[in-house]
Design a protein around this nucleic acid. Structure first.
Lengths: 120, 120, 120, 120
DNA sequence: GTGGTCTAGACCACG
DNA sequence: GTGGTCTAGACCACA
């Protein structure tokens, strides 16, 4: 379900956050579906429960999941969290495009590259 | 010439790298133009020379500058370095666009956002 | 009668306490009216009887309900319980208002916000 | 500077967050002023550095402070964070006032209580 | 059993 | 020395 890459520059808890967020926002994990427990996921990934705990806590604070003590953690309805994430992505997009323009790349070339990556 | 922002999430040496790279790739620093010495820049920015040293070393390893022992550091010809940087940016662009697509954003909406940010 | 919200930050037993207290103090449940039995309410809300038990026990200790062995639990006369609750709310009100003042908000602005929320 | 209360219902990291936030938003700690280091504060309060670390991390994510690895943590300019905090307080104010109204308290009585607490 | 908090101690990146 | 990440292990509140 989740793949950790220890050579990745991102810390482990961040990889978990990104992975779960993607699964939730794309609907691979349905709204209100139960996520694996902190301890279960820690065992499965062979890492410390505190690391999972941190990932879950941050996902909750950004609205992607909700946790109930004694019950478990659950995927949140997509709406709010998706909007937040989209804004982040748009900001990143603008920054990247701006730097490409500074390097003399035209908007047409950029649009071409985007279409070219369609099959990814 | 360079502006450091301590509230920026990026570490200082990274801000220096990004700043110098941009000045070089956009031509603001001409090819083969001499860069300030490590000690001079450290004094000007009021930071540790080790930090400048690291930025210069990494810029050299990615081909944006070259150093001549006893003479100083100089901006490299743009061609190779720019191509490398463009590929990085394209890769990032593809990743961002792909995630937006996963969230259900159409290519038309993405293109719209890029044009919208034209004035930035 | 009672609505549980698992996305609420408050634990279940607390939501039950708050919900019942409100029903009693506003008169929606009349004084001396019988409350549903622990088991009945647990079944209706599909939760653990221990959770209901805890809510009832704490409501009794704060004087909002009273229990008669073998008969069940009943809403208490409003007077005392309401006074206690009002004092709690006033204390919270004062703390919130004080912090707003510390942030430079004037009493007029605060009063305005209260009136503005009238329709809630 | 900060007082911890182990009998307080709030967890320690939360008490630290609330205390520092108040000091910053009221100007007791000036913008860009350096906060005590994670380790120093941990020693002073006789608690684990991880607990301080958590408080600082959350304050940074809500915009009240900013941290620079290798340099320290600093109070952020007041503007943004204050607005966020005010909204939280207004929301809490509305909820409290609404419950008082449900108990039959008139807006006049509420306003009276607020003025009464003026000297706090 | 589940999430949440805390401690003790370690290692790394940064300046 | 500073912040940031991670581990190991413990205890508590909740259901």
């Amino acid at each position: 379900m989740l793949i950790l890459n220890y050579r990745d520059a991102r810390p482990i808890y961040q990889q978990i956050k990104d992975g779960l967020r993607k699964l939730i926002l794309t609907g691979a994990i349905a709204p209100d579906e139960k996520l694996p427990s902190v301890r279960a996921l820690a065992t499965e990934l062979a890492i410390n429960p505190n690391t999972i705990q941190r990932a879950y806590a941050e996902l909750e604070s950004e609205g992607a999941i909700y946790s109930v003590a004694g019950k478990g953690s659950f995927a949140a309805p997509i709406n709010e969290a998706a909007a937040v994430r989209k804004e982040e992505l748009y900001a990143q997009l603008r920054a990247t495009v701006q730097e490409l323009r500074d390097l003399g790349v035209t908007d047409e070339e950029i649009a071409e590259k985007i279409k070219g990556g369609k099959g990814l």
